[in-house]
Nucleic acid binder design. Structure first.
Lengths: 197, 197, 197, 197
DNA sequence: ATCTAATCGAGACGGTACGTCGAGTCTTCCC
DNA sequence: GGGAAGACTCGACGTACCGTCTCGATTAGAT
C-alpha cells in the first residue's frame, strides 16, 4: 500500500534500520515493562538512536507505539478456514487468547489504557488493529452465512460477543483467559447463531 | 475493615467534610475533563484542600480515585426483578449503558486505563465495582435457573457475554452503545441460555 | 530596598539556604569553568537542588547568573578615601584589577559576553554592577572637585577613561592587566584632570 | 600564509562563489539579527549552501565567523594623516564609532562575546582585527612623536585610553557613542600627551 | 568520449542542554 | 494535632542547535 515509489528525494534517505530498531525497542520495552516505564529516552537508548530522531519521525511517544503495534500486527495469524463454523470460531478465539496471554498481551493492555486518554492512540488502535482484524474475521464468518450460520445474524454484534468477553477478562482481570474458557464461550455463542438443522 | 471506632486521639479529628470535598472533586474532574487534567494539584484546588491533606489520607492518587469510585458506586441501581429473565437482562443492560454513556462513563474508561499499569487500582476496581455488581447480577439471574434459564449455564460466562461486549465498545470505541444494541445483544444471548419450552 | 517586610505568607517559606546554594554553585561554576559549562543541570547538582527549583525562582539561566553576580558584588570594596585624588584613583584601579585578574575575572568576562546576546543580562549587569560602582566612584572623585580635580571635568568621561582601558584589556586580552599598567594609566590620566598648581 | 599553489588535484574544484556566499551570509545574519539566530543551519540556508559544505571548509562555526570578519575588515578605513595630532586622533575615533554604531557594531559585540568562551576566536579576533588596527594607528601616531606628541608616551597605553572607552561603552552600553563624546575624549587625552609649547 | 575524483545541496543522525510539568514529600503558620 | 499554602526533589517530556554522516547530482581533469 501507499505506492512506495517515493521519487527518492535529494538528501540522505531515512535510515530504515534505525526506524526498525526504534520500533523494535518500543515493542520490547512495552512487552518487558509497563507503558509508564517506556520513556522516550529508554527507547532511544535501547535502539541506539537519539531522541531527536524519534521526534523527527513521530509527533510523540504514543505515535511511536502505534507504529510499533502496526509492525507487530503484520505478523499475526489470518482467520482460519476449516470449513466448519464452530471450528473456525474456536480456532480464532484460541489464537487470540494465545496472543493475549503471551508477552504481547501487555501491549494490548497498554494500548487500550493509553487510548482512554488520547484520541489519537484510540483512532490508531482501532484502524491499525481492531478494524482489520474484525474485517478479516467477518469475511471468514460470512462464508458460513446461510449454510450453518443463521441468515439474520448481525456480524458486528457477533464480533462483539466473541471478542468482548476476551477483552473484558484481559482488561478487568477478574478471571483468567484459558482455552477451556473460550471453548465454552464458543459453544454457547454457537448455540444462538447456528441454523437449526 | 473500617469501623475503626477511632479512639479519639488527642488532636483535632479528621475533617470529614474535607474528605468528601476531595472525593467529589476527584470524580467531577474525571467526569468533566480528561484524565490528564485530573492532577493532584487540580483536585486539591477544586476541593479547596491542600495536597498534603490528600497525601495524609491516601497513599497516592489512585487510592483517591478508587475511594471516589466507591462513593459513586454506592448510589447505583440494584439488579431489577421483573419476574422475566429476558426483561431482567434487558433492563440491567440498559441501566448499565445509561451509566456508561453518561458523564460517569469517562470514569470507567479512566479506571480501566489506570488499572493496566497499577495492580492496586486493578484490585480495587474489581473489588469495589466489578465483583459486587457481578454478584448482584448473578444472584438476580440465579432466581431464573431451572425455570427459564437452562440449568447448565455458567453464570460467570454469562456475565462476560452480557457485559464484555459493553466494556469492549466502551473502551475500544469502534461503535456506539445504544439501547437498540443492548436489546439485540440480549435477544441473541437469550436464545442460547433459555430452556426450550 | 524593597521593604523586606513580606507579611509572611502562609505556606512553607522559600528555603533561603537552597537559594544561597544555587547562587553559590552558579558562581563557582562560572569561576571554575566557562559560561558554556554552566548548565542548569550542573548548577542544580552542585547546589544539591533540583532544576525545578531553579526555574521556579528564575526565568532562565542568565537570571540566575545575574543574581549570583549581585551576591558576589555585595562583598566588594568601597571606593577608597585617602585624601589624595591620585592615591584614590590608583587604589581604586588596583583593587579593580585585583578583582579582574582573580578568579572573579572569569565571571566578568562571562557577563559581558552574555550581555551581548541578551538584553536582560545587559540591563541587569549595568544596574547591578556597573552603575552602583560608577556612582560610588564618582562620589569619591567628586570630593576632590575644585580642590585638585579641575572643575570642568565630566566625571562620566573620566570613569570611562579609567575603567574603559581595563575592560578593554580584560575582554580583548591583547595585553595583561598589571599594577604597573594601572599606575601608568593613572599617572597619564591625572595629568589631564588635575588643577595646575 | 596561503598561496598554496594548489597542485590542482583531479576532482571538481572548490566553488569560490559558495565560499563567498557563506561568509556573506554569516556576516549579514550577525548584522541583521541576534547572535542566537546565527545558527549554522541559518547560515547554510541563507547562503543557499549546505551545512556539509560549511564543515568541509571550516572546522566550526567560530572559524566561519572569524573568516567572515577578516573579509569585512579588509574594507575598513586607513589611519588618517592630516598633519595634526589632534585631528588625526579625532578623525580616527570618529571613524571608529561610525563603524561601531552602524550595522557592523553588532558584529563586534558578537565577537567579543564569543571570544570569552573560545580562545580560538579570541586569538583570531586579536590577530585579524585588533592588532592590525592598533599597528596602523600606532604608526600614524608615531609620526607625531617628538613633534606634538610627548616623547615618553607609551603608545600601547595611549591606544588603550583612546579605544578602551569606546569598547567599554559598546559592550556595557551604559551610555551612547556619539561624536561629541569622542571629541571630548580626544580633547582630554590630548591634554596629557601633547608637548607643552 | 569516457572515466574518476572531488564538490555540492539536501537532509538524516547522535549527542547534549534547554525549559516545563506532574507526583509525592516536607515545612511553616494558623486554628 | 489537623489543615492550607506552597516550596522542594525527582524524573520524563518535547525542542533546538551542533557537528557528522550519507545520499544523488555536478563538474572538471585524466585517460
Amino acid at each position: 500500500m501507499t505506492e512506495e515509489v517515493t521519487p527518492r528525494g535529494r538528501g540522505r534517505p531515512r535510515d530504515e534500520d534505525t526506524r526498525a530498531r526504534i520500533l523494535s525497542a518500543a515493542l520490547q520495552i512495552l512487552e518487558d515493562q509497563s507503558f509508564a516505564t517506556a520513556t522516550t529516552d529508554a527507547i532511544a537508548e535501547k535502539a541506539g538512536a537519539s531522541k531527536a530522531t524519534i521526534y523527527r519521525w513521530w509527533p510523540n511517544k504514543s505515535a511511536v507505539m502505534v507504529e510499533a503495534l502496526r509492525e507487530a500486527v503484520a505478523q499475526e495469524l489470518p482467520f482460519p478456514d476449516t470449513g466448519s463454523l464452530g471450528e473456525d470460531i474456536r480456532l480464532q478465539l484460541r489464537n487470540f487468547i494465545r496472543l493475549l496471554t503471551g508477552r504481547r498481551g501487555r501491549i494490548f493492555k497498554a494500548f487500550v489504557a493509553a487510548a482512554q486518554n488520547d484520541s489519537e492512540v484510540s483512532d490508531a488502535f482501532r484502524s491499525v488493529w481492531v478494524r482489520p482484524r474484525r474485517m478479516a474475521a467477518k469475511a471468514g464468518l460470512e462464508r458460513h452465512r446461510g449454510v450453518t450460520l443463521r441468515n439474520e445474524i448481525d456480524l458486528e454484534l457477533l464480533m462483539d460477543i466473541l471478542y468482548g468477553p476476551l477483552y473484558y477478562r484481559l482488561l478487568v482481570g477478574h478471571a483468567p483467559l484459558t482455552e477451556k474458557y473460550v471453548d465454552t464461550l464458543a459453544e454457547l455463542v454457537l448455540r444462538s447463531i447456528t441454523k437449526e438443522a
